[in-house]
Amino acid sequence: VGFSPSLRWQQQQVSNFSDIRQSIAKNRKHWSSQTLDDNVLMPKLADEEGWKRFCLGEKLYLGTSSCDPDEEPESALDYCKVGFPPFLSIVSRLNQTTLLMVLEILISWFEEREFVPQLGRWLYALLACLEKPLLPEAHSSIRQLARRCAQFRSTLESREDEKLPALNLLICLVARYFEQSDLADQP
């Protein structure tokens, strides 16, 4: 009680998310055809460890993060350390098979670790590009994500915790946009 979002906020997020997905569809062709910077080396499809490093950065992947992960990189090279953000030019290149695989990798990572800002950005971006109707394995994965978010939320001690909005957003989108209603926060 007191940690879950209002119904009005949830409805607004679903509406915004729907608009964003439509805009992504319009932008996909443009951004997927843009040349990536030389430093953006996307992992191969089955390179699970490579995707973790790519999205979350070496510091988190290696468990050596001691600085603010939101800190602005001083150069493009630093993205290797803090992870590449989900730029449209990157996520627009992912087909549905790759997208779902990366989503599963990150959810699996989250199952054993704490929530971090760059994880939230990537999960949101991947959900925004996940096409409906969902495959059965996608249903299972996003439900796992919502349950983990709720579990992690239950460990927070303050409503002011900066992780709370992100957790609520992900739960909201899985439950209300992707119609997993039994997982929704009720008013």
């Binding site: 209002s6 915004n16 443009h30 950005r121 709370l164």
Partner: peptide, 28 residues
């Protein structure tokens, strides 16, 4: 088909959308 440049999002649009959603959070 040529796209209208005004319809093309910035490369960081998804990140901005996420940050905006998170910032807008309100509890019940």
């Amino acid at each position: 088909e040529k796209s209208d440049d005004s319809d093309i999002w910035d490369d960081t649009a998804l990140i901005k959308a996420y940050d905006k959603a998170v910032t807008s959070f309100k509890t019940a």
